[in-house]
Computed example of a mutant assay.
Amino acid sequence: MITKVKQYHELTSIKRERVLPVAGDVLVRRMQKVAPNDVIVVAPLAPEFILIDIAQGLRVSPSKADELLQRQAGEELVKGDIIAGPVGIFKRVVRAPQAGRVKIAGEGKVLFEVDAPAYELQAGMEGTVTNIIPERGAIIETRGALVQGIWGNGKITYGILQPVSSDLLQELVPEQLNIGFRGTIISAGFCRNPNVLETAGNIPIRGMILGSMSSALIPLAKSADFPIMLIDGFGNKPMNRAAESILIANKDKNIALNAQVYDPFQGNYPEVIITQLTKSDPDLPPTTDSLKTGKKVIIVNGLLASRIGKIEEILPQKRILPSGISTRVASVILSGEEVVEIPLTNLEIITE
């Protein structure tokens, strides 16, 4: 069975294709050094239109509203510019709600096109542009440590890594956060208290890496001003040991946190990249591999989620789970020589 490979590396080659789904203007050149927050390509967004009822706003008839229009189709306006009026004792006017332009005016109405900011795609990592994809983006490469997760709130940052403690298996509570973490990217075990995210935003921190988080906090995490990445998913699961050891070892180092939305079909994972200056040239890690005896795996679902072990055997016959589902399972040896049977669909290969 082919499965995804989750990457936990102290040192590996990293190659990322950063592209837009629509045509845009590429702002970088080949062999250029980039930082995570550097914009590499911009593209215009689809315009937004607002239909403004001038007659209703001025409390006049459509024909009278047309007489009171001060703008013509094609005129550029800033927010607050008068479109029509004044009229009446109180000198009523209709103003531009945002910066934009008049597209059509008449019959007591104005179709107003709002200026939409261009979409900017950031590099998401520190590295070198090795190839340009015309009108779409670039390929960026580097060498360093890599830790991938399975959920992100869609934001990117770059800063100093500060584990909250030397043990990332425990719950993160508000009392652990203080002014000393201002401007840093913190890492911790798991979070289930909404006050943690509020406190972190007030400090403010630059980013947060967690083993897991209560699913009830998803709306709050999505609206946070800083990136949040979950390595092992939702619930009260401690961070797995492989990720923990890499993050602890890189304390006080600059890291790129790209909490992009998890898209397994495109191979996009939220991830931490810690660029390292080295003369070695490690191979690029595989993105998929076959589950088989001897492979190191992480359990991604169930009561044992985030535990790491090694496949002892893939059982030849399907097993019926307590849920009634019949599926293939593997015998997995966990730490302490504990042996458990896990459905193959609940396993991902990890490389270190």
Rank of each mutant, 00 (worst) to 15 (best):
P36E: 01
M1K: 06
D38W: 05
E10P: 02
V19L: 10
I52G: 07
K6T: 05
E48K: 15
L27K: 15
V19S: 08
Q7S: 07
R18F: 02
Q32T: 06
K4T: 14
M31I: 05
S13C: 08
G57W: 05
V34K: 04
P44A: 11
R30C: 01
I2Y: 09
A23E: 11
L11H: 08
D38H: 08
E17R: 06
A23S: 11
Y8E: 01
V34S: 03
A23F: 10
V19P: 01
I2N: 08
P36L: 00
K4G: 07
L20E: 03
A46P: 03
V41I: 13
A46C: 03
T12Q: 11
L45C: 06
V28L: 05
R18T: 00
H9F: 15
G57M: 00
K6C: 00
G24F: 00
T12D: 09
P36Q: 02
H9Y: 14
H9A: 06
E10C: 08
R29I: 08
T3I: 07
T12K: 10
S63C: 04
K4C: 06
P21V: 10
K4Y: 05
A35Y: 06
G24R: 03
R29E: 07
V39C: 05
K15W: 00
F49A: 06
P36A: 14
E17K: 08
I14W: 00
V39R: 10
L27F: 08
A35F: 08
L51C: 04
V60W: 08
P21Y: 02
